[in-house]
Design a protein around this nucleic acid. Structure first.
Lengths: 194, 194
DNA sequence: ACCCGAGCCTACAGGTAGTAGGCGAGTACC
DNA sequence: GGTACTCGCCTACTACCTGTAGGCTCGGGT
């Protein structure tokens, strides 16, 4: 064979297909066509379709972690937050299919992977530049993830298409708002317990 | 036929199936089985599978709008925000399949529907209790939607399963944080332009 | 009473997931 | 150098899904 097949090759091709045609269009038949083999041949390398999907998710997690790591290195506070957000948004726009693969319940192996831990640890790292007490980090991380991911999801499904201005403007506003929120975190917690 | 079929009956059944088995499991075959007819018979009532999906989305939008409307009526400020958020979360938990149907790009007819407009107008209504200038409403509405939807999405895909405490705690914190953010909105905008 | 049409049916074409088993090419070992 | 083994891709097949074509039946209107 010119290009010997392997699990990695199958998953890399499936990821490319996801970016081109959407994660939901990833089928073993389509991947096999692209690789120039018959569909059943793929089962020598991957267990089933779900394994390919999980493979894309794992691949995407690793790439996202690298991109975010490069962005937040050596930054703190607002610049770190901006880099963190920008990395997520860049990833979502550049590799839409891979990003879609993250918006689903993945297999246990993927969830426990180093890349998955890395991504959530990075949100915590950004918080180091803010006065958020350690025991509240979970909440702040969840809030950060919710807003950033939520924005990208709404943008991608066209929720912002029928109002102006362009999403970019709201995006910058949103990041600044998150910064303000994190800077004022102690006061809000205090107010919360009152 | 005991229960004469209609487009509404097909879509109602499909929505029930979505809640039970997940939106992605909605197939015309499965709906036909549940209704006790053969699959091709459904094509007399609905154009194709995509029309059924759009039907579920439209149905869900209407139900969500009603639920939110009941919650925010007669409330302002934090209570309104809490009711608004709670309505969304209640909806997502009670009718998971219908909620999933909202997390996708829907057909033009659905996007333009009265229910769709109502849902986005409700976010604007909540903002009336906050000092957010009219020309900034878009940004605030987008932020609100991103965070609330994003949280529910992450919760649903199990992102919060491997950390404590329970998502409920973070949810309350998140809503309070949004309240603080909206109350302090003018300052942040000012800081943004500086 | 009769005709007509709405609505469900069977039959079928095309596409996808996944299994079973064959076959050929490279390899290791005698 | 020959034999036998193994691995990877193949063909063939089952089961299930979407969507189309065309037939049959029953109930309502004239």
């Amino acid at each position: 064979m010119r290009v010997p097949l392997s699990a990695e090759a199958v998953i890399a091709d499936a990821a490319a297909l996801a970016d081109e045609a959407g994660f939901e269009s990833v089928s073993l038949s389509a991947v096999a066509r692209r690789l120039g083999v018959q569909a059943p041949s793929l089962y020598s390398h991957v267990r089933d379709l779900e394994a390919v999907r999980d493979g894309i998710t794992a691949l995407a997690l690793g790439e996202l972690a690298d991109l975010v790591a490069a962005g937040i290195a050596g930054r703190a506070g607002l610049p770190a937050l901006q880099a963190y957000s920008a990395a997520h948004r860049t990833f979502a726009r550049r590799w839409p299919g891979r990003w879609q693969s993250l918006q689903r319940r993945a297999g246990e192996a993927v969830v426990r992977s180093a890349a998955a831990r890395a991504v959530s640890a990075q949100a915590g790292a950004v918080l180091r530049g803010y006065p958020v007490p350690q025991e509240e980090h979970v909440h702040a991380v969840r809030l950060l993830g919710s807003t950033i991911n939520g924005f990208l999801a709404l943008e991608r499904t066209g929720n912002f298409d029928h109002s102006s201005p362009a999403p970019e403007v709201s995006w910058d506003r949103t990041v600044v708002a998150l910064d303000a929120l994190l800077r004022a975190w102690p006061e809000n917690s205090r107010g919360d317990e009152a």
